[in-house]
């Protein structure tokens, strides 16, 4: 169905995360120059984000804010945006996401999703106004923001098997939107809290990767009951992989039967 399309990818390395930029174009066009330009813009943007929000860099805004050297009220729009988004995330997850979890401000859990979503909207999305670009996406280490300019194209996304990283457990089809997955596998435990549930991996589908990523992170640290309640309230979509590797999908807040694969 997508047989006349060509896929091109570029991989960027920032914050120790591989960011894959994917461009779907008609196979006969040459968009090398456009892809090079956009990749450069994204590269620069991600470097700036890292410089600004890394808690490992002593001169980052986040580090300066932690040392009370940066005044929140006169910080620039980007810093204020991240601050506001992290407060918002704490609200809607009822504390499941908390940038002050360590006792000092560290928005790391939100910044990557925001950076991918923002870079996609600013630099890749505009390409879709041109007929030579059918679909674009940025996937940062498994969390992605995707878009298409026509209904004929479907992104097909594989959800990884946390027990065997060369395998997938499920696939999703999506025209436009975001998918974030959080779990216990490659880097070991991502969250400090002892697991409050039997979730091995949690995937969230939504429009905004910032929001989807926050839910995937927060959901993994909640009790299963709390997550279920909030997923119904916020009409979340996604799937859980449990410790026993059974899977369960939910869509629009409605939960389906668990399945043993």
């Amino acid at each position: 169905m997508n047989s006349t399309l060509r896929k091109q990818t570029r991989v960027l390395n920032h914050m120790n995360v591989p960011f894959t930029l994917t461009f779907m174009t008609p196979s006969e066009v040459d968009v090398t120059a456009e892809i090079a330009t956009v990749s450069q813009q994204v590269d620069r943007f991600l470097a700036q984000v890292d410089q600004k929000f890394s808690s490992f860099k002593v001169d980052s805004d986040v580090s300066r804010f932690q040392r009370h050297e940066l005044d929140l009220l006169t910080a620039d729009a980007t810093f204020q945006t991240i601050y506001a988004l992290s407060e918002d995330a704490k609200q809607f997850t009822q504390g499941g996401f908390n940038a002050y979890y360590h006792g000092y401000y560290d928005p790391t859990g939100l910044v990557k999703g925001w950076a991918i979503e923002t870079a996609h909207r600013r630099f890749l999305q505009p390409l879709l106004g041109h007929p030579w670009f059918i679909a674009t996406g940025i996937n940062g280490g498994g969390d992605m923001q995707l878009a298409t300019n026509e209904d004929e194209f479907d992104w097909e996304i594989g959800i990884e098997n946390p027990n065997n990283l060369q395998q997938i457990l499920a696939t999703y089809h999506l025209n436009n939107g975001a998918i974030a997955t959080f779990g216990f596998n490659k880097r070991g435990l991502h969250i400090e809290r002892p697991a409050a549930n039997d979730f091995r991996q949690l995937t969230i589908i939504g429009d905004s990767l910032t929001t989807a990523d926050v839910w995937a992170t927060a959901g993994l640290s909640m009790t299963a009951t709390d997550f279920r309640t909030l997923s119904e309230l916020h009409q979340l979509s996604g799937m859980v992989v449990y410790d026993d590797l059974s899977v369960r999908a939910f869509a629009g807040g409605e939960w389906f039967h668990a399945q043993k694969l």
Partner: peptide, 11 residues
């Protein structure tokens, strides 16, 4: 499949 979603991959 064009994309894989899983827990964060390091570079």
């Amino acid at each position: 499949i064009q994309q894989v979603s899983g827990a964060t991959e390091t570079y």
